[in-house]
């Protein structure tokens, strides 16, 4: 069991690596998608017993997935706007976020 949790954590860290070390906006979104999937899996494993997966755990996993999906669609829309405005997807070029 602990191995499964550790693998989920590593998957999360892989996503985090993408968010932190990649400059392309699409890559950042891919990193977040990986993190969302790992969170969903943690909920599945948490509720797992021989008979199946518990209801509340499933509900929470579903909420995490759908919420993450909603956030990612917004991010995609924003990245397209940013590309239109700055002509690049490189986040180090898009510095006008600084207020």
């Amino acid at each position: 069991m602990i191995a499964t949790y550790t693998l989920c954590a590593i998957l999360f860290l892989v996503g985090l690596y993408g968010v932190v070390r990649r400059k392309n906006l699409i890559k950042v979104i891919i990193g977040i998608a990986i993190m969302v999937q790992s969170v969903g899996l943690v909920f599945v494993v948490l509720g797992y017993s021989e008979g199946g997966v518990g209801g509340i755990s499933q509900t929470m996993g579903l909420v995490a997935l759908i919420g993450g999906l909603a956030v990612m669609t917004l991010m995609i829309a924003t990245s397209i706007r940013l590309h239109q405005k700055y002509g690049t997807s490189d986040i180090s070029e898009i510095r006008r976020l600084k207020g």
Binding site: I26, V53, Q58, G61, I66, M72, I76
Partner: peptide, 24 residues
């Protein structure tokens, strides 16, 4: 693992996210 709802959520995730990313 028997998590039907989460699995369906995953299907929705892939079905929406991948085409959106390709479009982006």
């Amino acid at each position: 693992m028997g998590a039907l709802e989460v699995g369906i959520g995953g299907v929705i995730l892939v079905a929406i996210l991948i085409p959106l990313l390709i479009w982006a």
